[in-house]
């Protein structure tokens, strides 16, 4: 464990807490893409198949449980909660996310560490996570204005993988035969996808104005 990875995990945890706060405090999920939440639930379920077989550390196990439980809780809440579900922007959240699932799975069959069930699903979860934010970014683009908590949620979600890139650079220089190129390349793509969001987020922060995405 290094400071970059710990900062990344904490940033990821903060993004989840901000999302839960937004939904719980406002009893609304307007501006949140259910499809991105479903993709993230799938990412964690397929990435942590080794949850009960490979014990890394207490921290690792607890964080995996938190990520799985929170992503499922958000999906269930957005689908079932009678008040929250009414605020879901169903007609704006129309990204065909099944294509993202299919593309990630095909790529995982072709490019993986080892052609085994667990490694294919691990690679699938890595590729899917890189693309999972797309429905959310498209929804924000369509809805134009971004409320503070949603903006902070997306910002921290994007920032966490940027910390992981620093972690991989650090590990590359401090550990022999460290090669996580699947996670590195995918993490780079993932972070780049946030580039324009980060730009508009920074502008709104600099001008102390409400965040506006160009329609």
């Amino acid at each position: 464990m290094n400071i970059f990875r710990f900062a990344g995990d904490m940033t990821h945890l903060i993004s989840i807490l901000v999302l839960l706060l937004k939904i719980y405090a406002t009893k609304s999920c307007s501006g949140i893409s259910l499809k991105t939440q479903e993709l993230y639930a799938l990412v964690f379920l397929t990435r942590y198949l080794d949850l009960f077989t490979d014990f890394i550390s207490v921290y690792n196990t607890i964080m995996k449980l938190v990520f799985i439980a929170s992503s499922l809780a958000v999906v269930c809440c957005m689908r079932m909660h009678r008040v929250v579900r009414r605020s879901y922007d169903k007609d704006l959240d129309t990204f065909r996310h099944y294509f993202l699932i299919l593309a990630s799975f095909v790529l995982a069959l072709l490019v993986n560490e080892k052609f085994t069930f667990q490694e294919i699903f691990w690679a699938f979860s890595i590729y899917l996570e890189a693309l999972a934010i797309l429905p959310q970014l498209v929804l924000l683009q369509r809805s134009g204005n971004v409320d503070n908590l949603t903006g902070q949620y997306v910002f921290f979600l994007g920032a966490y993988r940027a910390f992981y890139i620093l972690n991989w650079i650090y590990r590359y220089f401090t550990e022999q035969h460290f090669s996580r190129w699947i996670a590195c390349v995918s993490g780079l793509v993932q972070t780049v996808l946030y580039a324009d969001f980060f730009y508009y987020y920074f502008i709104s922060w600099k001008n102390n104005a409400k965040m506006q995405l160009p329609a």
Binding site: H12, D54, N60, F67, E113, W122, Y164, A183
Partner: peptide, 10 residues
């Protein structure tokens, strides 16, 4: 070591 757990990250 090759058998080290490749996926020690979240």
């Amino acid at each position: 070591s090759p058998e080290e757990n490749l996926h020690d990250e979240l």
